[in-house]
Design a protein around this nucleic acid. Structure first.
Length: 164
DNA sequence: AAAGTGATCATG
DNA sequence: ATGATCACTTTG
Protein backbone atom coordinates (compact mmCIF):
# COMPACT_ATOMS: atom_id res chain seq x y z
CA UNK A 1 0.00 0.00 0.00
CA UNK A 2 1.58 3.22 -1.19
CA UNK A 3 0.95 6.25 1.00
CA UNK A 4 -0.21 8.18 -2.04
CA UNK A 5 -3.17 5.83 -2.36
CA UNK A 6 -4.45 7.23 0.92
CA UNK A 7 -6.92 10.11 1.15
CA UNK A 8 -5.05 13.42 0.85
CA UNK A 9 -5.13 14.47 4.53
CA UNK A 10 -3.68 11.13 5.62
CA UNK A 11 -1.16 11.10 2.79
CA UNK A 12 -0.10 14.66 3.66
CA UNK A 13 0.60 13.65 7.23
CA UNK A 14 2.43 10.47 6.19
CA UNK A 15 4.60 12.38 3.73
CA UNK A 16 6.29 14.66 6.26
CA UNK A 17 9.67 13.22 7.13
CA UNK A 18 9.96 11.31 3.85
CA UNK A 19 12.68 12.18 1.37
CA UNK A 20 12.23 13.61 -2.11
CA UNK A 21 14.82 12.60 -4.70
CA UNK A 22 15.26 14.77 -7.77
CA UNK A 23 17.31 13.44 -10.69
CA UNK A 24 18.39 15.99 -13.30
CA UNK A 25 19.01 15.06 -16.94
CA UNK A 26 22.75 15.66 -16.42
CA UNK A 27 22.85 13.07 -13.63
CA UNK A 28 22.78 15.43 -10.68
CA UNK A 29 20.81 14.12 -7.71
CA UNK A 30 19.19 16.41 -5.16
CA UNK A 31 17.75 14.91 -2.00
CA UNK A 32 15.52 16.77 0.49
CA UNK A 33 13.45 15.74 3.47
CA UNK A 34 9.88 17.01 3.46
CA UNK A 35 9.11 19.31 6.40
CA UNK A 36 5.72 20.75 5.51
CA UNK A 37 2.71 19.65 3.47
CA UNK A 38 -0.90 20.59 2.83
CA UNK A 39 -3.84 18.46 1.70
CA UNK A 40 -6.32 19.45 -0.99
CA UNK A 41 -9.17 17.07 -0.76
CA UNK A 42 -11.42 16.70 -3.80
CA UNK A 43 -14.23 18.69 -5.40
CA UNK A 44 -16.05 19.14 -2.09
CA UNK A 45 -13.05 21.05 -0.67
CA UNK A 46 -13.57 24.65 -1.77
CA UNK A 47 -9.87 25.36 -1.34
CA UNK A 48 -9.00 22.70 -3.93
CA UNK A 49 -8.38 23.82 -7.51
CA UNK A 50 -10.73 21.11 -8.71
CA UNK A 51 -13.66 22.45 -6.70
CA UNK A 52 -14.70 24.38 -9.82
CA UNK A 53 -14.62 21.27 -11.94
CA UNK A 54 -12.35 19.68 -14.49
CA UNK A 55 -10.43 22.13 -16.67
CA UNK A 56 -7.29 21.92 -18.74
CA UNK A 57 -5.25 22.87 -15.70
CA UNK A 58 -7.00 20.73 -13.09
CA UNK A 59 -7.18 17.69 -15.35
CA UNK A 60 -3.97 16.36 -13.82
CA UNK A 61 -5.58 16.21 -10.38
CA UNK A 62 -7.95 13.55 -11.69
CA UNK A 63 -5.11 11.28 -12.72
CA UNK A 64 -3.61 8.35 -10.85
CA UNK A 65 -2.05 8.59 -7.40
CA UNK A 66 1.63 9.39 -7.82
CA UNK A 67 1.11 11.82 -10.67
CA UNK A 68 3.01 15.10 -10.29
CA UNK A 69 0.99 18.32 -10.49
CA UNK A 70 2.99 21.50 -11.06
CA UNK A 71 1.53 24.92 -11.75
CA UNK A 72 2.62 28.54 -11.69
CA UNK A 73 1.41 30.82 -8.91
CA UNK A 74 1.58 34.63 -8.70
CA UNK A 75 3.36 34.63 -12.04
CA UNK A 76 6.62 33.62 -10.40
CA UNK A 77 6.52 30.48 -8.33
CA UNK A 78 6.11 26.86 -9.32
CA UNK A 79 4.07 24.78 -6.87
CA UNK A 80 4.79 21.08 -6.46
CA UNK A 81 1.90 18.75 -5.67
CA UNK A 82 1.58 14.98 -5.54
CA UNK A 83 -1.73 13.50 -6.63
CA UNK A 84 -3.25 11.09 -4.11
CA UNK A 85 -6.34 8.91 -3.70
CA UNK A 86 -8.35 7.19 -6.40
CA UNK A 87 -8.33 8.05 -10.06
CA UNK A 88 -11.07 10.57 -11.02
CA UNK A 89 -11.16 11.82 -7.43
CA UNK A 90 -9.13 15.06 -7.54
CA UNK A 91 -6.93 15.15 -4.45
CA UNK A 92 -3.36 16.26 -3.97
CA UNK A 93 -0.72 17.10 -1.40
CA UNK A 94 1.17 20.37 -1.77
CA UNK A 95 4.82 20.17 -0.75
CA UNK A 96 5.13 23.40 1.19
CA UNK A 97 8.61 22.94 2.52
CA UNK A 98 11.70 20.75 2.60
CA UNK A 99 14.85 20.97 4.69
CA UNK A 100 16.85 23.92 3.40
CA UNK A 101 13.90 25.42 1.53
CA UNK A 102 10.98 26.78 3.58
CA UNK A 103 8.06 27.95 1.42
CA UNK A 104 6.52 26.18 -1.56
CA UNK A 105 8.11 28.49 -4.15
CA UNK A 106 11.52 27.80 -2.64
CA UNK A 107 10.99 24.06 -2.79
CA UNK A 108 10.66 24.01 -6.55
CA UNK A 109 13.54 26.40 -7.02
CA UNK A 110 15.74 24.21 -4.82
CA UNK A 111 14.73 20.99 -6.57
CA UNK A 112 14.73 22.62 -10.05
CA UNK A 113 11.15 21.71 -10.71
CA UNK A 114 9.02 23.44 -13.30
CA UNK A 115 6.11 22.88 -15.68
CA UNK A 116 8.01 20.17 -17.54
CA UNK A 117 7.33 17.73 -14.69
CA UNK A 118 3.60 18.37 -14.77
CA UNK A 119 1.55 15.22 -15.40
CA UNK A 120 4.57 12.97 -15.06
CA UNK A 121 4.62 9.95 -12.78
CA UNK A 122 6.79 9.76 -9.67
CA UNK A 123 9.73 7.40 -10.04
CA UNK A 124 12.13 8.84 -12.58
CA UNK A 125 12.86 12.58 -12.56
CA UNK A 126 11.33 12.78 -9.11
CA UNK A 127 10.89 9.99 -6.58
CA UNK A 128 9.99 9.38 -2.97
CA UNK A 129 12.36 7.62 -0.63
CA UNK A 130 11.84 6.11 2.80
CA UNK A 131 15.02 6.17 4.84
CA UNK A 132 13.32 4.95 8.00
CA UNK A 133 13.24 8.35 9.64
CA UNK A 134 10.36 8.70 12.10
CA UNK A 135 9.27 12.23 12.99
CA UNK A 136 9.25 12.89 16.73
CA UNK A 137 6.20 15.05 16.32
CA UNK A 138 3.94 16.29 13.54
CA UNK A 139 1.83 19.40 14.04
CA UNK A 140 -1.48 20.11 12.29
CA UNK A 141 -2.66 23.64 11.45
CA UNK A 142 -4.98 25.48 9.05
CA UNK A 143 -3.84 25.85 5.46
CA UNK A 144 -2.21 29.02 4.16
CA UNK A 145 -3.39 31.40 1.46
CA UNK A 146 -6.89 30.09 0.91
CA UNK A 147 -8.96 33.10 1.87
CA UNK A 148 -11.25 32.44 -1.07
CA UNK A 149 -12.44 29.11 0.40
CA UNK A 150 -15.52 28.49 2.54
CA UNK A 151 -14.93 29.20 6.26
CA UNK A 152 -15.37 25.56 7.24
CA UNK A 153 -12.72 24.57 4.70
CA UNK A 154 -10.35 27.28 5.88
CA UNK A 155 -10.68 25.88 9.39
CA UNK A 156 -9.63 22.34 8.51
CA UNK A 157 -6.31 21.28 10.01
CA UNK A 158 -4.81 20.02 6.79
CA UNK A 159 -1.39 21.56 7.01
CA UNK A 160 1.27 19.36 8.54
CA UNK A 161 4.68 20.39 9.79
CA UNK A 162 7.62 18.44 11.13
CA UNK A 163 8.02 19.13 14.84
CA UNK A 164 11.37 20.15 16.31
C1' DA B 1 2.94 46.93 4.07
C1' DA B 2 3.07 46.33 -0.75
C1' DA B 3 4.53 45.34 -5.22
C1' DG B 4 5.99 42.16 -8.77
C1' DT B 5 4.72 38.57 -12.15
C1' DG B 6 2.25 35.65 -15.86
C1' DA B 7 -0.75 31.35 -16.72
C1' DT B 8 -5.37 30.26 -16.27
C1' DC B 9 -10.26 30.78 -16.50
C1' DA B 10 -14.66 33.20 -17.03
C1' DT B 11 -16.52 36.97 -19.30
C1' DG B 12 -17.87 39.51 -23.80
C1' DA C 1 -9.83 40.04 -26.58
C1' DT C 2 -9.74 41.71 -21.82
C1' DG C 3 -9.71 41.41 -16.93
C1' DA C 4 -9.73 39.15 -12.24
C1' DT C 5 -7.66 36.02 -9.60
C1' DC C 6 -4.18 33.72 -7.26
C1' DA C 7 -1.48 26.80 -2.75
C1' DC C 8 4.19 33.39 -2.86
C1' DT C 9 8.61 35.98 -2.11
C1' DT C 10 11.16 39.90 -1.43
C1' DT C 11 11.95 44.46 -0.21
C1' DG C 12 11.39 48.50 2.48
Amino acid sequence: MNILDLPAPEAARALVGRVLVRRLPDGTVIRARITETEAYFGQADTACHASHGRTKRTEVLYHRAGTIYVYLCYGIHWMLNLVTGQEDDPQAVLIRGVEGAPGPGRVTKYLRIDKSLNDMMLGDALALEDDGFIPARIDAAPRIGIGYAAPEDQARLWRFTLGA
